[in-house]
Design a protein around this nucleic acid. Structure first.
Lengths: 327, 327
DNA sequence: CTGAAAGCGCTTACAG
DNA sequence: CTGAAAGCGCTTACAG
């Protein structure tokens, strides 16, 4: 392995000069620069990043902590993070937390020791002490951690209101809202948005808490649909739940969208594969990941960034589980 | 930051002894061990892994190279890799290659410089030179790289034969096989398996090449179904293609499974969310990832492993897109 | 503008 | 069984 010393020797300068040239830090005369460049080229020298890290305490590594990459929301996020990271010369370490604070903390600490440069985190441990005294740059995704930490999120509340109005405008008279887990901030925001839109409409509604899980959602919706025969609209807080609802309806022989209209939330790829295609409030997950990564890297590189909260607009995707608007 | 020197001083021994104790390498007397242990505890000393890496050229980091984490096959793989890696004290770096040899090579080289310990790779660049002279441990997933590199894969051929027989046993008289991209090894194995099963059956069949992409598959199947009215069975080389086929059938008003039966390949979660649920040849993706990771870590830790090819059996999942067997 | 030297925090022959 | 010392390959004040 050729080292900086070899380069220095060949170029007839000191290692300090080579280092300055390589890092573009401090002055290097034109002559010296030329000699070093030639030596680097001739020796095919490549800087050893581990040795550098030991000095700088930087690694160009960032951690992405998600509950579970298997959850269809996260792969696209991971993709965005990796794409942007690559652009800036960073590499991504993938961590599944399972929403387990211990696991999360463990990753945080292990990687900190390895001089990781920062984290992008999707977590519910909003108030966990290990975030408070983390000296490392962190950006929160989807769910706020605390005021000191920049957050990127969809406009969940407004999006949910939009989704609700889709059903309202299409003549639903009794709407079932599948509310997400109560410990999830975004789920609560969506609930608020639903309430915003439904409140003054005069339309009847039911709210049922429902995990973001296909089979559970199907079961819950099946039960509700059997009990409440007059439900003609379902707004689910996630596409996976909406898929469960659609399946339940199909099994009960309820025609979608003629007898029952369904709207989801998320915009995951599966939505268009269903029959009929799922109408949904689509989050721009890729954009969220991209913004989060840029913000994080700015922080890592000490660029000032006054903005603290980044809201990414959702977009309605009208597909087959809703009818055309009644005029 | 407390270093090994602080510990040595407090314990009244040399740093060499502390290092030996910490790494359980070389002899350390009982007394010395006790003193060091006490000092470590009192000072809350934690070894600096970066400094260690500079010496050992090991980092406990492994790279996972996939074409695109957004492809529904890979998240579960990534999850398995990460789970097992964590068990052994390794951390996973996620790399999306987009099947682009340059990108792949770039990751390989960048991370090698960072003293990454090994790679798990899903790649088509079987014969790429950058794999031939990689001194690092590598395990190939799903697609063989070369004979020197251990490979983990499903029994694609046999699985495809099984899937074909599902249609045969259920009375299909004309089967459309959606063959995957010809540059993909597993896709070709599945084609062989289909041929194995169909050849002697006397049943008519068509073969159409079809990318593992939903919308494209839908389009292709729509066209074929319009042209060939008597197709009553489709075997798709991937679940995503099968979903496209199902969608095409639905739009054409063809009843599944009564008029047309469909079988997919992969076993991704989406399959059960469709209506009807997708019958499929399910790969045990998690197991594949877990095995690959264990094999890789064994190699990294220089444990001999004579086995070179690991085949993970597929499993039939009979759901709603096929009928019950005719007796 | 440049170099000698200390330092980042560990590991590992080597001599005893 | 143990320690002094060199070494991993870089960066960074500091003095000139």
């Amino acid at each position: 392995m050729t080292t900086i010393r070899d380069v220095a020797k060949k170029a007839g300068v000191s290692v300090a000069t080579v280092s300055r040239y390589l890092n573009d830090s401090g002055y290097v005369s034109g002559d010296a620069a030329k000699a070093v460049a030639a030596a680097v080229k001739e020796l095919k020298y490549e800087l050893n990043p581990v040795a550098r890290s030991l000095n700088t305490k930087k690694t160009n590594l960032i951690g992405l902590i998600v509950p579970d990459i298997t959850n269809p929301f996260f792969p696209e996020l991971a993709r965005a993070v990796e794409d942007v990271a690559l652009t800036y010369g960073y590499t991504v370490i993938l961590c599944n937390s399972d929403e387990n604070p211990e696991k999360e903390k463990n990753y945080l600490e292990t990687l900190k020791k390895k001089y990781i440069d920062g984290f992008i985190v999707t977590s519910n441990q909003l108030d966990a002490p290990h975030y408070a005294n983390m000296a490392l740059p962190i950006v929160a995704l989807d769910r706020a951690i605390n005021e000191h930490i920049p957050t990127v999120a969809s406009n969940n509340r407004e999006g949910a209101a939009m989704g609700t109005r889709v059903l309202l405008e299409r003549g639903c008279n009794r709407i079932l809202f599948l509310r997400g887990p109560e410990e999830l901030n975004p789920a609560n925001d969506r609930y608020e948005g639903f309430m915003d839109a439904i409140r003054d409409s005069g339309v009847e509604y039911d709210v049922v808490v429902c995990p973001f899980h296909f089979a559970d959602s199907e079961k819950i919706v099946d039960r509700v649909l059997r009990e409440q025969k007059n439900i003609d609209g379902i707004f689910a807080s996630s596409d996976v739940s909406a898929a469960g609802a659609l399946k339940a309806a199909a099994k009960l022989g309820i025609a979608v969208p003629d007898e029952l209209q369904i709207v989801g939330f998320d915009g995951i790829a599966m939505g268009e594969m269903l029959t009929p295609g799922l109408t949904t409030v689509a989050q721009d997950v890729y954009k969220m990941g991209a913004i989060a990564t840029r913000v994080l890297i700015k922080r890592i590189e000490n660029q000032v960034e006054e903005q603290h909260f980044f809201e990414v607009p959702v977009q309605l995707k009208i597909r087959g589980t809703t009818r055309s608007v009644e005029k």
